[in-house]
Design a protein around this nucleic acid. Sequence first.
DNA 1: TTGTAGGCGTTATCAT
DNA 2: ATGATAACGCCTACAA
Lengths: 343, 343
Amino acid sequence: MNKPATIKDIAKQLNVSISTVSRAMRNAPDVNNDTKAAVMALAEELNYQPNRLALSLRQKQTHTIGVIVPNLDYVLSMMVKGIDEVALEAGYTVMVCQSNESFGREIVNTRRLLESLVDGFIISVSSETKSFEHFKKIQERDIPMVVFDRVTPQLTAPTVHLDNEEGGFIATEHLLEQGYKRIAILAGPKNLGISNSRMDGYMKALKKYNIKPDPSLIIHCDFNQDYAYFATEELLAMKKRPDAIFTISDRMAIGAMLAIKKKGLSMPDDIALVSFNNEPIVSVVTPGISSVDIQSFEMGKAAAKLFIERMHHPDDMTGVEVVLKPKLFIRESSQRSFVKKLR
Amino acid sequence: MNKPATIKDIAKQLNVSISTVSRAMRNAPDVNNDTKAAVMALAEELNYQPNRLALSLRQKQTHTIGVIVPNLDYVLSMMVKGIDEVALEAGYTVMVCQSNESFGREIVNTRRLLESLVDGFIISVSSETKSFEHFKKIQERDIPMVVFDRVTPQLTAPTVHLDNEEGGFIATEHLLEQGYKRIAILAGPKNLGISNSRMDGYMKALKKYNIKPDPSLIIHCDFNQDYAYFATEELLAMKKRPDAIFTISDRMAIGAMLAIKKKGLSMPDDIALVSFNNEPIVSVVTPGISSVDIQSFEMGKAAAKLFIERMHHPDDMTGVEVVLKPKLFIRESSQRSFVKKLR
DNA sequence: TTGTAGGCGTTATCAT
DNA sequence: ATGATAACGCCTACAA
């Protein structure tokens, strides 16, 4: 029943003009203190709240950021939390849409958010996405867009992401230092940048240790526990099976771990495991799984900061690239016992 | 540079009136087919997109649902995914805000979403929240609101939630059936409904088996792995320590498990563990932890459906209450080996 | 079938 | 210091 009060109502009740009320509300300098006080008081009493829609329509900005993420698993939700924190601070509200790793859904989300007139976008692309027209359309309209985590060279925009190659490198090097020689990698989908970069790091480490990569030890599979499980089963069934596995996500690591246990092998003595993401889960399974931390929360914050900066800076910021450094957390799954190391 | 096209632009270029264009766009019956075609064609060419803001301002609805959740951990993000799915289907966009379990943040979120003129709310209250004025303000304005998961009798609204008492009951009864007698409970914060209901179920089960509840076995602590860890340490240090623990969340269960392992005790023979939520994590730790499934995804969908229904049904729906049934997933942590059961 | 005009709640420009 | 008025983009009586 309570139609929200408008400045019009206030004006009428106070016998002043609409514009005076508008000025008073926004604390303009050129308005009589008494009237200002009166307006404020009545506004309070009527529980007046400015209508954002009208405001937005007028100023052509909504103070809303559209965030499109592939999903809301642990990592992404930490990132979103980071975005949220910075955005709120800066006076922005965040609209989060999940693409569910679906290209079509991503397009729908983009259109919806565009229609909702968000002031800009912070996005991480779905693993299914190979064409980027929907995102380019955003840029053609000169709408600010920041790409984070899953970046792609096909999209020129300010970005923030992890140094994934470095992550792949330190993970692999750690295994090599522990004396493992036949190191398999469960990589992600082929077209996905983070997947390739992490694999590049893996390659680089092998090269540094003069180990020739064995194609049969390189497996591309979905970011998916089950796929990883089956892929690992195959690896373990090989005549010359690997003595270590590097999975590029924790979910995959869990799948690998289950396959290893099922086979009755022990970590890290029969086979070692190093993973990526460093979600809480890897520290509570037995044995704990070594994992590369990707600073999810920080990445979210960085993305939002970059976005805000871009908003205040209409200049061309397409070159800007924030790169976060990964950090390896070593646990039992990859620390060869002393005795074993010697043999 | 590309200012988005408006119906005005189209009208001008086609030498027709704005209203004709408006009608043509919305496929009104009373408009000449030729002009309609012309309008459509030009709209397509100019990449016209209706301005939602203007539309919303006019019709006083935004087709947006404000969702406020305490956090975005596994359970909640599944629920949000469920909400998202149904909402999208029904033509609504979802704005998700996290309160971070903070009362203040919840108030800020409410105000923001209210200002953004969302058509309604789907909320789950923060554990810190004891006063509900901010939510009641929503209701006073006759804005639809559905409460889900964490409901409270202090908030009269259509709700969807789990039968938490039943959940607590089946978890406890299962332990009793397995022969455990001194069953401790790690309950959540005292003012939280889900916490109390689950404990009620625990009590009910004890009563059914004629076991007098021991206050020293009932521990209230935060939904937090560390708290649970310390609480469990204390339980295990008791002279007559419990032979089973029921934790009302998986996160707490992990804490308890770690404390149990640290102490060198074995599950389920020295001590059993049953938990709540049935997140993927409990099935991959060793031993697997029995847990009560709460149907997160389904709950989200149900909440959104209820919301949509409420939108189409301005009647008083405050009485409506959707209750989902919990289901226990039994794993190793609570299945006493046959030998032990006999002794 | 098409056009005119008023209004949704605000702000901004120009007078007064 | 305050008021009148146009404009933001769209819809909808009402008129033609």
